[in-house]
Amino acid sequence: MFGMLSSLWDYRGFILSSIRNEFFARFARSKLGGLWMIIHPLSQVAIYALVLSNVIQAKLPDIDHSYAYALYLMAGIVAWNLFSDIIGRYLTLFIEQGNLMKKMKFPRITLPAVVLGSALLNNLLLIISLVVVFALMGQKITPEILWLIPLVLVTTALATGIGLVLGILNVFVRDIGQVVPIVMQVWFWLTPIIYPVSVIPEKFKGSMAYNPMFPIVSAYQDILVYNKAPDYMSIAWIAAISIVLMAFGLFLFRRAAPEMVDVL
């Protein structure tokens, strides 16, 4: 583990330049550039809001706001986007970078670090844009928003642990790459993002305890929509699980990296 951290520090220039190059390459020759990172999630929110607002809005508890449902949607989607973006990138990372891993000698851990840095940069810009949109909608921005910092770290750790394991498995069993997008889509709909917990039948509410994204998404909604601090205990529990998963993912990556090069 300490060897990985040392490699990341030694190659910090390579990591930072790779993140910068990837960011600008994504929007090369685009007239709107980085605005597409904001347009895509906001358009998703607009579609859900137009289709479902009349059905759901009356059932949102304790929100007295003309844009209540849109605020609720945006808070949940910004959390999910970071989670799904990291997992999606890790899923195909080692396959896409196979030639680089075989032809060049460098610390392999820098590849996940570049992906992670890029995803965090995108999410930071999205959160800033979201805060601006909330302010324009008349939503109060309170000091509780600082809770987003530990929440982003917890979400990142959880996604990194899951993403690394899936990305490694995908090298050896390519069916993983076909199954995971389906699972992620189902997972999205099983998480109270476009609907509140209150609409879930009582007999199914207990199953939310097995969904690690439920307390994270709920915490984002508490902070951004209800202007209150999240439940400390649930976040602490998910943080512990996330750290264990991330440590396991890094351990598996360290052990499997030589074999992945041979397979690729």
Results as ranks from 00 to 15, higher is better:
Lys103Ser: 11
Phe204Asn: 01
Lys59Ala: 01
Thr156Lys: 15
Ser7Gly: 14
Glu96Asn: 13
Ile216Lys: 01
Arg29Glu: 11
Asn99Glu: 14
Val263Ser: 13
Met213Phe: 11
Pro258Gln: 02
Asp262Thr: 08
Ile235His: 09
Ile38Val: 06
Leu8Met: 04
Ser129Ala: 06
Gly88His: 07
Leu5Arg: 12
Pro181Leu: 08
Pro212His: 04
Ile243Asn: 03
Ser234Tyr: 13
Pro258Asp: 02
Trp9Tyr: 14
Lys102Pro: 05
Val183Ser: 11
Ala70Pro: 05
Lys31Ile: 15
Trp189Ser: 11
Asp85Asn: 14
Gly138Val: 11
Pro107Phe: 00
Asn227Leu: 13
Thr191Leu: 10
Trp237Val: 15
Arg20Cys: 11
Ile241Val: 12
Ile38Trp: 00
Ile128Asn: 12
Met104Pro: 07
Leu82Arg: 01
Glu22Pro: 11
Phe83Gln: 03
Pro215Asn: 06
Met4Gln: 14
Pro215Trp: 05
Arg12Leu: 08
Leu91Met: 03
Ile162Lys: 06
Val183Cys: 07
Trp80Asp: 02
Pro192Thr: 10
Tyr72Phe: 01
Leu264Asn: 05
Phe251Thr: 08
Glu144Phe: 12
Ile77Tyr: 09
Thr92Val: 11
Val183Glu: 15
Leu42Ile: 06
Ser30Asn: 10
Ser7Leu: 03
Ala239Cys: 10
Met260Thr: 10
Leu111Tyr: 01
Ser17Cys: 09
Phe253His: 00
Tyr90Trp: 15
Gly13Trp: 10
Thr142Val: 12
Ala79Phe: 01
Lys203Tyr: 15
Thr142Ile: 10
Leu16Asp: 07
Phe106Glu: 14
Arg20Pro: 05
Phe188Met: 13
Arg255Phe: 09
Leu250Asp: 01
Trp189Thr: 13
Asn123Met: 07
